[in-house]
Simulated assay, not measured.
Amino acid sequence: MADEPDEVPKLDVPVGMFEDIEDLKAQIARLSAQVEALTGDDGAELGEASTDDDEVAAGGQAADHAEDEEEWQYPPFILLLDSPEYDDELRALIEWVEGVLVPGYLAEPSSDARWCHLWWQHPVAIARLHALWLAWQEMTDPVSCGYTGPSVWQRDHLDPCMRELRASTGPFAGCTKGEHQIAHRLPGLVPSAWTQPED
């Protein structure tokens, strides 16, 4: 054949490049599957009408189909939950705090870095630690956050949360190693322009 060159040029390809390409292909496949799952895409090409569009145009039951799909659930704010959901969420939070956070990240309590062994009796601590735990769940998922998720979690979530909780003015301010106090964090009566003190 006249179109083929006499000699095929040799390409210098780095050894790990093929593995990198295969990793990228796998990541693209996972992301594509996530996008399809989140958008409900049935694989139609751009510009093609989906079956849902056809049903709506024909006066079909697309609204009923949408109601059948599972509704997106946002993470709960623990202080707004009622029992038994609150109890279940608090139990899971306690397991994470006592099993991961305390042994892995907390140093010995001191006057500059306070901690209460009964932290779950402080609503402010519950709220902050629950938010920290939700962020941990998201940021340690390698599918959504890759390799940098844990670092970002520590920088953006763990460190600020611990600074607030363990500060000398934080929710554990009245707690010492041998004593637990929660009454010191309850707000006092705030004067109001709408009410006048009785004479």
Results as ranks from 00 to 15, higher is better:
R128P: 00
D112V: 12
C145R: 11
W136D: 04
V143C: 00
A131H: 09
P76Y: 02
W72T: 09
G146S: 01
V100W: 04
D82W: 07
P84T: 13
A63F: 09
W153C: 07
L81V: 03
V143E: 15
T148A: 14
L132P: 00
A127V: 06
P75W: 11
H130K: 03
Y105G: 06
T140F: 02
D159S: 09
Q73E: 15
G99N: 02
W72L: 13
H122D: 09
E67D: 13
A92L: 11
H130E: 07
L134N: 01
L80D: 15
L118A: 07
Q154M: 08
E85Q: 13
S144R: 13
V152K: 04
E138T: 10
E108M: 11
Y105N: 14
P76R: 06
A113D: 04
Q154F: 11
P160I: 13
P109R: 00
L129N: 05
Y86N: 00
Q73H: 07
L132K: 07
W133E: 07
E89P: 08
H117R: 03
E69H: 14
H130V: 02
A62M: 08
Q61D: 15
L158I: 06
E85D: 12
W72K: 08
L79I: 06
A113W: 04
T148Y: 01
H157Y: 07
L80C: 10
L106W: 03
L134K: 10
A127Q: 09
T148G: 08
Q154G: 02
A113H: 13
D159G: 05
G60D: 06
L134C: 12
H117I: 13
A135M: 03
W136T: 03
A113N: 13
Y147S: 10
Q61G: 03
R128A: 15
G149N: 09
